[in-house]
C-alpha cells in the first residue's frame, strides 16, 4: 500500500509508530514490523523518542524499507544543526524513505542523557522550510543540489491544555503548513466528539489530519494523562472501564482499537503509538476491524 497515494486520494491511512532498539539487537523490531506489514500503510520511526538515546530513526527506517514497509521518519532540531539535518534528509531520500514528520524534540532534561548539549539550530518551521528548499534543489546556504529529494512532509499539532492553548497551537500549525507541512498529526485522541470539534477547527488548514491513537497500557498511565494532559480528555468513564476490566491490558487495546474504528470517516488516518508495545499492534488492529 502507498500512504502517499492515499493521502492524495483522501483514503484513510493507517500508520504505526515503531521504535528503534536501544542497542543493535533489531530482532524484535523486525518481528513486530513483519506482523503488521500487510495491515498498515506505513510506519513512523521516532528519533530518540522522549529524549532517550537509541538507534537513529534513519537506521530504523532503512530496516523497515528492507522489509518492504513504507516509512516516515521523525526529524527535529534538538540534536542536529542545519548541516546535519539537511545531510540526513538527503540520505533519507536516497535510502528510500518516503515521509518526514517534523516534530518537537523532548527537552533534554526529560531524557536519559540530561548532560548533553542542545543544538536547536532550526525549529520546526525552520526544518520544514529546509525540506521545502531541498525539494526545490537548493540548500539553506543557497547552493544548488545535484538531484532533488522528495517527501510527504508532515507536522504535529502541539499539545494544549485549554481553549487558549488550542488557539495558540492552531496558529502555530498554520505557520507550519505555510512552511510546507502537507499533513498534521494531532495529540492523542480518546473522545470522538471532542475530536470532531477539533477537526472543524483544523479544516482551514486544508491538509490531511491524522489523530494519534495512544495505547494507555495501565490505569496509572490513563490517570496520569487525564491529570497532566487535560487537552487529551480522558474521561473518568474510560479510566473506570480500564480499572474494572478483568484484563486491563486487553481493555486498553480494545479502547485503542475502538477509537481507530470510530475515527474512520472523521479523520484521514491514524498514527498508532504504543511506546514499546509494538508487539500488541496486531491485536489493536484486530479490534479496529482491520
Amino acid at each position: 500500500m502507498n500512504f502517499q497515494k492515499k493521502f492524495a486520494s483522501g483514503e484513510f491511512v493507517f500508520l504505526a509508530e515503531m521504535n528503534t532498539p536501544k542497542g543493535v539487537d533489531i530482532s524484535e523490531m523486525i518481528t513486530n514490523a513483519r506482523r503488521i506489514k500487510d495491515r498498515i500503510d506505513g510506519v513512523i520511526i521516532p528519533d530518540m523518542d522522549n529524549g532517550v538515546m537509541r538507534m537513529s530513526a534513519l537506521g530504523g527506517a532503512v530496516l523497515m524499507r528492507q522489509q518492504g514497509i513504507e516509512t516516515i521518519i521523525h526529524v527535529y532540531g534538538r540534536d542536529r544543526n542545519k548541516m546535519a539535518i539537511q545531510g540526513d534528509i538527503l540520505a533519507a531520500h536516497v535510502l528510500g524513505i518516503q515521509g518526514i514528520l517534523v516534530v518537537r524534540g523532548e527537552e533534554m532534561a526529560s531524557g536519559d542523557h540530561t548532560d548533553a548539549r542542545v543544538v536547536d539550530d532550526l525549529d520546526e518551521e525552520g526544518i520544514l522550510r529546509a525540506i521545502a528548499s531541498l525539494q526545490k534543489g537548493i540548500d539553506l546556504a543557497g547552493f544548488e543540489l545535484k538531484g532533488t529529494p522528495k517527501f510527504v512532509t508532515g507536522c504535529t499539532l502541539g499539545p494544549y491544555k485549554d481553549d487558549d492553548g488550542l488557539e495558540r497551537v492552531i496558529t502555530a500549525a498554520a505557520k507550519k503548513v505555510e512552511a510546507g507541512a502537507g499533513f498534521i498529526v494531532t495529540p492523542p485522541v480518546f473522545d470522538i466528539d471532542r475530536f470532531s470539534i477539533l477537526m472543524e477547527r483544523l479544516k482551514p488548514l486544508n491538509i490531511p489530519v491524522i489523530p494519534t491513537i495512544f495505547l494507555l497500557k495501565t490505569v496509572g498511565i490513563a490517570r496520569y494523562m487525564a491529570t497532566y494532559e487535560p487537552g487529551v480528555f480522558i474521561s473518568e468513564q474510560t479510566i473506570k472501564r480500564i480499572r474494572q476490566a478483568p484484563d486491563r491490558e486487553l481493555e486498553c487495546i480494545k479502547i485503542a482499537g475502538e477509537t481507530i474504528h470510530a475515527l474512520r470517516g472523521i479523520a484521514q488516518g491514524v498514527r498508532i503509538v504504543t511506546l514499546g508495545w509494538e508487539h500488541r499492534l496486531p491485536t489493536i488492529l484486530e479490534y479496529a476491524g482491520i
Binding site: 527537552e107 533534554m108 532534561a109 540530561t114 548532560d115 548533553a116 548539549r117 542542545v118
Partner: peptide, 12 residues
C-alpha cells in the same frame, strides 16, 4: 571528561 551541559543554557 566530556562536559556536563546541564548547568549551562542547555539545561534550559
Amino acid at each position: 571528561p566530556a562536559k556536563d551541559w546541564r548547568p549551562s543554557r542547555d539545561g534550559g
